[in-house]
């Protein structure tokens, strides 16, 4: 049981990192304050970006669930 969750956790972690990097870094963070000016473009996000959001949230939820499941398993195991 632990192995299944471990493998799943590693996979979702990698997926999550990949997905976040795919996002179009919307000038967030400190670099935005650095003379970026008004960098966020007008209009909403594109369809692709919105789907990416959904997939990221999905991956995040699975990732979270895996961590909690692993935590509980390890706690009862020791």
């Amino acid at each position: 049981m632990t192995t299944v969750f471990t493998v799943l956790l590693i996979l979702t972690s990698l997926l999550l990192i990949l997905l976040v990097l795919l996002h179009k870094g919307r000038g967030g963070g400190l670099s935005d304050m650095f003379g970026g000016g008004v960098s966020s473009g007008l209009g909403g996000s594109s369809v692709a970006e919105r789907n990416l959001d959904r997939i990221t949230v999905g991956a995040g939820v699975i990732w979270f669930a895996c961590i909690i499941a692993l935590g509980l398993l390890l706690k009862s195991g020791s």
């Binding site: 999550l16 976040v20 990097l21 919307r26 967030g28 966020s40 990221t56």
Partner: peptide, 12 residues
């Protein structure tokens, strides 16, 4: 990575 994304979401 998730934190970075959360931060960007707030900015956005």
């Amino acid at each position: 990575a998730v934190i970075m994304w959360l931060g960007e979401l707030i900015t956005d």
